[in-house]
């Protein structure tokens, strides 16, 4: 009883949510978003790795291409009523496109509203990993840089030359 009484004078652990917000750290794994690259383009290239990594198979997408050959998702759907926020998708993502952000306030009365489409997921920000644009380091020409014009690339080979 004495112990209980003493606790009256301790600092309170309970916070008055929702009036008072929870302090969440940047690496907290909450709502999933799709980010954009520094040039404002969609980062997701539709590689399907997040979908393959997802242990509850709650990500479905379809890749498509624009006229320059840039891959992007035609649709990108996450069923949050199945998501377990494990973060495997973020780990698997080769382009930093899919990220888990510190937000958990997703309660819904209707389960159907937990199905997020691409327009619900896409944010106008680079998220946690600024400065990365996959198409600048990839080998393909998707309208971002020509062949041999990337940072780590030699100029395109002239096949007619036999010089070393």
């Amino acid at each position: 009883m004495w112990l209980v009484f003493l606790h009256l004078f301790h600092k309170r652990e309970t916070i008055q949510y929702p009036e008072e917000k929870v302090k969440l750290f940047p690496r907290w794994r909450g709502r999933i978003v799709l980010t954009k690259d520094p040039d404002g383009g969609e980062r997701c290239v539709g590689c399907y790795l997040c979908a393959a990594a997802c242990p509850v198979d709650c990500i479905a997408l379809q890749a498509t291409e624009d006229e320059n050959g840039r891959r992007y998702p035609e649709f990108f759907r996450i069923n949050f009523s199945r998501c377990i926020f494990c973060g495997f998708c973020e780990e698997a993502c080769p382009t930093y496109a899919i990220q888990l952000i510190p937000d958990f306030e997703m309660g819904e009365y209707n389960r159907q509203n937990l199905v997020f489409e691409k327009e619900d997921l896409l944010i106008n920000s680079e998220g946690k990993y600024p400065g990365y644009n996959f198409y600048k380091v990839a080998g393909i020409d998707a309208g971002i840089k020509g062949k041999g014009q990337g940072e780590n690339e030699l100029p395109a080979v002239d096949t007619k030359s036999l010089l070393p």
Partner: peptide, 8 residues
């Protein structure tokens, strides 16, 4: 992949 999202 996508079993729980394809037709969601």
């Amino acid at each position: 992949s996508g079993r729980t999202a394809m037709r969601a």
